[in-house]
Design a protein around this nucleic acid. Structure first.
Lengths: 137, 137
DNA sequence: AGATTGCACATACTTTTTGAAAGTGCAAGC
DNA sequence: GCTTGCACTTTCAAAAAGTATGTGCAATCT
């Protein structure tokens, strides 16, 4: 008997095109990680409502360290989602905003976030059921 | 019955019973991370097209280790996005599929992925511009 | 027939990433 | 005149992720 009855594996119709996040070394995976990573998605969503200065963004995205916020914004800027505008004043003033592409992307991210938040009661219920079933040994 | 694991005093009246990913201790942030984390989003997107066995999923999501895939699927299962069905055969056969809530969520994730892939030419151009401006000797 | 491969994980150990803390240089407010 | 805020960078400890190996059995290869 073969190991057979193998569930037919899906073949991505877009695989023949240049970018595929399922491919290990594809640059699109890196960009996706910048956008959906722990801090990237929150920074993008925060900027969705309008430009913010570095420390304002830091206060909005609770829990992010200065180091990680700087790193995250640098990656998003390089990818063309975020625009950085620094005024050479003292103290420094740096405004972060979304580019047109960034705004489109952030819209989808905000939509995702709001959907997830709306599903949280069901998620919480599922977690409770899961933990009940496990602990009941 | 509080939805948030901790309800600090600075939570305002309107947000008290809502989930907010910007809040450090909100459970919705953890769930969002399960979904949009490095492997979570790829696993969800892979399952969007139909059920897959553990090792098939592992082959589809290039680069994921067994440890991380198992960990990721366990979190997604606990959150109620993924359904795990194990057959007590030898060798073992375990099918992973999306729950109704998981399917809705995966739809949004797939949409996001496809959008990001479609924007990659612009991203690549932005990166080139950025690097040019910086490395300009 | 004995060795190898595949299955779905778990566990010990190593490497990478992240986070926390302090440094920078200056100016406005207490 | 001393603290605070600005937008970061750098250093070092902690956490997360990645690597390698173990498990038990059956089907396939040599």
């Amino acid at each position: 008997m073969t190991y057979m009855t193998e569930t037919p594996e899906y073949v991505d119709e877009h695989a023949r095109f240049a970018f595929d996040v399922f491919a290990k070394a594809c640059t699109s995976r890196t960009t996706l990680e910048h956008l959906t990573g722990r801090w990237g998605i929150l920074a993008m969503a925060a900027l969705w409502h309008g430009p913010l200065r570095f420390n304002a963004l830091r206060r909005r995205v609770e829990g992010v360290s200065e180091k990680m916020l700087a790193q995250t914004l640098q990656a998003l800027e390089r990818d063309g989602f975020v625009h950085r505008e620094a005024q050479p004043s003292i103290p420094p003033r740096v405004d972060y905003s979304l580019t047109p592409m960034g705004r489109q992307t952030a819209g989808k991210l905000v939509d995702l976030i709001e959907f997830v938040e709306s599903q949280m009661p069901e998620v919480t219920a599922a977690q409770a059921r899961h933990d009940q079933a496990k602990v009941r040994v």
